[in-house]
Simulated scan of single mutants.
Amino acid sequence: MPTSSLTLPIRRLTPADLPAALDLSADRSWSREEHKWRLLLSAGTGYGIDAPPDDPEGGLIGAFVLTSCPGYGCVGMVLVARRHERRGLGGRLMRHAIAEAGDRVLFLYATDNGRPLYERLGFRAVGAVTTLSGAFVPGGTTEPGVRVRPATAADLPGILALDLPVAGMDRTHLLTRLPAFADALAVAHGPDGRLTGYGAAWPNAGTTVIGPLIAENPATARALVTFLGARAAAPVRFDVDDRHPDLARWLRARGLSGDMRSTLMVRGAAALPGDISRRFAPYSVALG
Rank of each mutant, 00 (worst) to 15 (best):
P144I: 04
G145C: 02
G145V: 03
V146A: 13
V146Q: 05
V146H: 07
V148R: 08
R149N: 03
R149G: 05
P150A: 14
A151N: 09
A151H: 07
A153Y: 01
A154T: 09
L156C: 00
L156T: 05
P157N: 10
G158N: 09
G158M: 02
L160D: 10
A161C: 01
D163S: 12
L164E: 13
L164Y: 12
P165S: 03
V166G: 05
V166L: 06
G168N: 04
G168C: 00
D170P: 02
R171L: 05
H173F: 04
L174K: 07
L174P: 02
L175N: 07
T176S: 11
T176D: 08
R177M: 14
R177Y: 06
L178S: 03
P179I: 03
P179R: 11
A180E: 15
F181K: 06
F181W: 13
A182G: 09
A182I: 01
A184G: 12
A186S: 13
V187F: 05
V187Q: 06
A188D: 09
A188S: 13
H189K: 00
H189C: 13
G193N: 07
L195P: 04
L195G: 07
T196Q: 13
Y198V: 01
Y198K: 02
Y198C: 02
G199D: 06
A200Y: 03
A200K: 04
A201M: 13
A201W: 02
P203F: 10
P203N: 10
P203Y: 10
P203L: 09
N204L: 14
T208W: 01
T208E: 12
T208C: 13
T208D: 12
T208L: 04
T208A: 14
V209W: 10
V209T: 13
V209F: 08
G211D: 11
P212R: 11
L213Y: 06
L213C: 11
L213G: 08
L213E: 08
I214M: 12
A215V: 08
E216D: 15
N217Q: 14
N217A: 15
P218L: 12
P218E: 13
A219G: 12
A221G: 13
A221K: 11
L224W: 05
V225L: 04
F227A: 14
F227S: 13
